[in-house]
């Protein structure tokens, strides 16, 4: 303690890479714990996809199949996409908008926290929650829907959906920078729910009205769900590259928008 008491103007020892890594891990851990204990978050993010899946995938249409893929399998892909989207959008946008609007982000920024750790933690948390949602859907499908997929396919399905968390986390960061602390959740719902419907996440794509089917082609969740459906043989056999490109484009555009928001914030504060 006495060593730190005299002011020194010369350089202090730098933070070691290990120390920086520890900060990133702690930031992510507490971001995860924070949301896990937030009933609003877990309830909306976990229970809706699971409930819908049980109702529409396991109770009502369990014996049906689409193009050789049973509905319980098919809907792991679509409700998986739905769940990943929710976990990622709410996981990033709601917290960011509130932290920005109500001063907590300033406290963090005044501290020696590496600024990127804050954003990384939100994305990591979203990815973990996405993995949890998809795993639970798979578990339900296996236990009650007779879903039997080769392990490699299960892993690929999980990997695809969880990778899909990244573009939606980017979208969430962009929303979080432009929505107020109270308006963020309704704004997310305005994006999340119509897009889910129009992308064929609730009602399978081929049963959607023609006009909606055309809208679906430009919606990111459609492309993620088609990638996931491709793994279980239920997709429309479009080029996977196109789907990935759309998702990549969404990621880059949203990160660009988030960056503008970040700089606008700095601008306001850094006048």
């Amino acid at each position: 303690m006495s060593a730190t008491s005299t002011p020194r103007f010369n350089a202090l020892p730098q933070r070691s890479p290990g120390h920086t890594l520890t900060i990133y891990l702690k930031e992510a851990k507490y971001e995860f714990l924070k949301n896990l204990r937030l009933r609003v978050y877990t309830l909306s993010v976990l229970s809706f996809p699971l409930m819908f899946y049980v109702l529409f995938g396991l109770v009502l249409n369990a014996r049906e199949s689409i193009g050789g893929t049973t509905i319980p399998t098919y809907m792991i892909a679509t409700y998986g996409t739905f769940g990943v989207m929710g976990a990622s959008l709410f996981g990033t946008a709601a917290g960011l908008a509130a932290d920005r609007g109500l001063g907590w982000l300033q406290v963090k920024r005044a501290s020696p926290m590496p600024p990127f750790a804050y954003f990384a933690a939100k994305v990591v948390m979203s990815v973990i929650f996405s993995a949890i949602v998809v795993s639970l859907l798979m578990l339900l499908g296996f236990a009650f829907g007779g879903v039997r997929l080769p392990l490699a396919n299960l892993a690929k399905l999980l990997g695809t959906l969880v990778a899909g968390s990244l573009p939606f986390s980017a979208l969430g960061l962009a929303v979080g920078y432009f929505a107020g602390p109270n308006s963020a959740p309704p704004v997310i719902n305005l994006i999340y729910l119509p897009m889910s419907f129009c992308s064929g996440l609730w009602v399978p794509y081929m049963f959607l009205p023609k006009m909606v089917r055309q809208i679906a082609l430009v919606l990111p969740p459609y492309h993620l769900s088609q990638l996931a459906l491709g793994v279980v043989g239920g997709g429309r056999h479009e080029s996977a590259a196109t789907h990935w490109e759309v998702l990549l484009a969404l990621t880059l555009i949203c990160l660009g928008v988030a960056r503008v928001g970040f700089q606008r914030d700095q601008g306001k504060l850094y006048g």
Partner: peptide, 29 residues
């Protein structure tokens, strides 16, 4: 920044984290 501490007026602090967790995280910086 590592030599500075600050107490600001803040509207909302993450409410679901425990006191020791908040301190643990900030200490790590």
């Amino acid at each position: 920044r590592v030599r500075v501490g600050a107490m600001l007026q803040v509207g909302r602090v993450p409410e679901t984290l425990r006191v020791r967790e908040h301190i643990d995280l900030f200490s790590s910086y």
